[in-house]
Amino acid sequence: MSYRIQSGDTLSALAKRYGTSVDALQKANPQIKNVDLIYAGDTLKLPGATDGFDGPSGRTGPNLTGGVDGPSGPTNSGDGVKGPKGSPFDIARSHLNKNAGSLKMEGSGVGADMEDWVPNNVNCANFVSACLEQAGQISNGQHDNSVMGLQRKLDADPNFKRVSIQDAKPGDVVSMKVGDGQHVVMFAGWKDGKPQFIGSNNVNSDGSQRISFSSMSYPIMSVHQYQG
């Protein structure tokens, strides 16, 4: 979400209005060098109600998406799906335990492909799309920040087909129904007979998202598998 600065606005007042912090606003807008100096007419990116930036040791908390964090998750992609540039599962796993807010600030790789205006409590499709882009499975134009939007684009892509969860491979895109909304992650293997997933999940105590392994029991809407 973005905001056009009006005459008389201050970062502290805008942070209070939009439920964020001055520090988060500055991190989301690196062009601001002095927090006491902003200009009317400039566009400000709003990081969302929760900042989700890594502190000295990161953040931890309950898994608010309803899953249970595994101790480490699968150790390798095995027979997982790969794109022309690699495995989306391995790419996702390389960012394990990073907060979405911090990942979006990275200037290369997945972070560069994620759109930093997306609020830090709803980055699931943003993250999955970026991993698929990095693996070469989708184009930048197919990137979508909504679960249903990404689902529609994968349905329209002849390189993907829908499969059952029983036939899923690491890196497959799994869309779920969560209450009145949706969530999207990637399949990560099986543990104790239950499917495991990796993605940007609401596991931080403030509701913001962190890249984590989880076991979830939400109704699955679709599983998309890359065919190449």
Rank of each mutant, 00 (worst) to 15 (best):
S214M: 02
N99R: 04
M221V: 15
S212A: 14
Q31I: 07
C124D: 01
W190I: 01
A135E: 05
S102C: 05
L150C: 07
D90L: 07
F89V: 00
K45T: 15
P74S: 15
P88C: 06
S164F: 02
S217R: 07
K98M: 11
M114Y: 04
G58K: 02
A92C: 08
S217W: 00
L44T: 05
G48R: 04
A188H: 09
P84T: 12
F197G: 01
P62K: 03
L25P: 00
A100N: 04
S21W: 00
G193L: 04
I5W: 04
M1Y: 09
Q227A: 01
R152Y: 14
P47I: 01
L14K: 07
M221L: 14
M221E: 12
K33L: 11
E115H: 07
T75A: 14
T10W: 00
K153V: 03
R17Q: 14
L150M: 10
G58T: 15
T10L: 00
W117D: 12
I91K: 02
A28D: 07
R162E: 15
G193D: 07
S215P: 00
D36H: 09
S215R: 09
Q137E: 14
G41L: 07
F89Q: 00
S2T: 14
I165Y: 11
Q209L: 00
V178D: 11
G109S: 03
V128W: 04
D144F: 11
G107N: 09
S214H: 02
P30H: 01
I198A: 03
R4M: 13
G149Q: 06
D54T: 10
Q137S: 08
L132N: 01
A125G: 03
D113H: 09
G179E: 06
K104E: 13
P62M: 06
D192R: 13
N202G: 08
S208L: 06
A92G: 08
V81S: 14
D180T: 12
S94G: 08
D192N: 15
G8Q: 06
S164K: 12
N123L: 08
H224P: 02
P84I: 10
Q151M: 13
I198G: 01
G207A: 06
L103V: 03
S94R: 13
E115K: 09
D23N: 12
A13W: 04
I32T: 06
H143F: 13
G141M: 04
S72F: 15
N204L: 05
A168R: 12
V81Q: 13
G73V: 12
V178M: 13
M216Q: 06
S77A: 14
N140F: 10
N120W: 02
M176K: 04
I211L: 11
I38T: 04
